[in-house]
Design a protein around this nucleic acid. Structure first.
Ligand SMILES: [Mn+2]
Ligand SMILES: [Mn+2]
Ligand SMILES: [Zn+2]
Ligand SMILES: [Zn+2]
Lengths: 135, 135
DNA sequence: ATGCTATTTGCAATAATGTTGCAATTGAAT
DNA sequence: ATTCAATTGCAACATTATTGCAAATAGCAT
């Protein structure tokens, strides 16, 4: 499924910014920050437009946001064949990358009476396979 | 254990800012933001001092930081009788509070070969018992 | 193809969170 | 009381993000 088709299927207008973001995020093997996405993008956009695009794409569950450490935010594709389930995310302290762990589903946590949960975020921090080899 | 004793036990200098932060966080039943801590504090401190104090207290595991949604950060006491274990955190979408779920330990997630984990953060988002009653 | 209109964009301003360098101040050890 | 390393306050700067408003544009109808 192409970026344009994804936008159409949600009745979202096809704009080059949205299309570009989806395209970049689709091709990426890891979650990307705003700057990393901008680097891979042809065309320059105002940051406001960028943020509004992210917000829209998030609302329609086309991408999802991973907040690592409130100065580090990354975005990844969602709602596709490979990104269906709610999964844990891995952050590598050495190479500062974030990876969607599709094969690590978020576990169920039992809340006290009266509490209801809507979603659970799991962020595992450590050293990735690539960085570990380099030691 | 009093704030001063906590500082002494880590060989940290006793400053009114550090002492005040620990005192406020100790008395709180929920995690507090920078602004909430400042409100409950006697004495005014520069933001830089505040942040440096947070950083130090975090490094010595006297408090811990909960990043909800990268524009919302809260701090809670750590390393005491009631805050020994690694626990999940609950964020209420309605009253915007964060609570340490001492009784909900973080579960173990199995990583692929080559990956090693250092810590895992679990943030459960939903509606707290208090807000649910009010509906 | 052309025009219409609601949506989207760019720009300016504003906000929250956080860091760095440096001089002045201070905690606490002697 | 003296000393000095640690801490503070101030200024400047960085990153992530939001809002209002006028200009531009996508998608639809004609
Ligand atoms: Mn993911
Ligand atoms: Mn906690
Ligand atoms: Zn790595
Ligand atoms: Zn609540």
């Amino acid at each position: 499924m192409k970026p344009v088709d994804i936008l159409n299927s949600h009745n979202l207008k096809r704009t080059s910014c949205r299309e570009g973001i989806i395209d970049v995020v689709m091709k990426a093997s890891q979650a990307l920050s705003e700057i990393e996405i901008r680097e891979r993008l042809t065309g320059n956009y105002d940051r406001t437009t960028f943020y509004r695009s992210f917000k829209t794409l998030e609302e329609y569950k086309i991408i999802h946001k991973i907040v690592v450490d409130n100065q580090l935010v990354k975005y990844a594709l969602d709602n596709t064949v490979t990104h269906k389930n709610k999964h844990a995310h891995f952050y590598c302290n050495e190479c500062n990358t974030v990876k969607c762990m599709e094969n690590i589903p978020v576990q169920k946590y039992q809340l006290p009476d009266g509490y209801s949960d809507i979603e659970t975020e799991v962020l595992i921090k450590g050293t990735c396979a690539h960085c570990k080899m380099e030691d």
